[in-house]
């Protein structure tokens, strides 16, 4: 920490990597994301193995509607862009812009989550419940786990916004914002595979 003692009120250009703690946080988070990759990968492989076992329930190509998936994808992709803008604002030390971009990210995330809740509600009414078939169970586990990650991310970034408003941008708060942004990108990366493997491949008969 002492290797980078900066004058009061003068932040380094990459404040998230200015302290050893910050660098360790970023490195540790990458290893966590490696673990998250395994978590989603196992859920994906379970889904791949079970996606044709529909029993009496509706098959994937009758169930899914691509316009809804396209809107959800657009929301999440845009929110990933706004969270990278937040990090860019942080690197140029514009706290206000950083907070605003994070707020936009959270709002877009909420929109995505709302769509997913509507989607699940709609599916249950179409006779596609959690226990309908192996396909439905693996579908809800995979997509639901992703949705839970989005919900957690919204909560996390919201709390971070409050902290940034209170404490401003320091070498302590900067790594938190950086790591939260990485988490959000990771959620979007997982969604790329979900819309490809679950929805688009499900639509191909």
């Amino acid at each position: 920490m002492s290797a980078h003692s900066h004058a009061e009120g003068h932040l380094p250009h990459e404040p998230e990597k200015a302290t050893l703690e910050g660098r360790n946080k970023v490195l540790g988070f990458w290893l966590f994301l490696g673990g998250e990759t395994v978590l989603f990968g196992t859920l994906f492989s379970a889904f791949l193995a079970l996606r044709h076992q529909v029993l009496d329930g509706p098959p994937a190509h009758e169930l899914f509607s691509l316009p809804l998936v396209a809107i959800a994808t657009a929301l999440l992709l845009t929110s990933s862009l706004t969270s990278v803008f937040a990090v860019h604002a942080m690197h140029t030390h514009r706290v206000k812009a950083l907070i605003n971009w994070l707020i936009i990210t959270v709002v877009l995330g909420l929109g995505f989550l709302g769509l997913e809740i509507y989607e699940f509600y709609h599916y249950v009414h179409e006779g596609h419940g959690f226990t309908t078939s192996a396909f439905s169970s693996s579908f809800y586990t995979l997509v639901g786990f992703h949705g839970a990650h989005v919900a957690f991310g919204i909560l996390w970034i919201s709390l971070l916004i409050v902290q940034l408003m209170k404490k401003g941008l320091t070498v302590v708060t900067a790594p938190k914002a950086y790591v939260a942004s990485m988490y959000w990108h990771f959620i979007d990366v997982v969604w790329v595979f979900i819309f490809t493997v679950v929805y688009l491949m499900g639509k191909v008969v």
Binding site: W30, L33, G34, G35, E36, T37, G41, F44
Partner: peptide
């Protein structure tokens, strides 16, 4: 870190 995750997934 990510590649070791990807290896398990693959």
């Amino acid at each position: 870190g990510i590649l070791s995750g990807v290896f398990v997934v693959f």
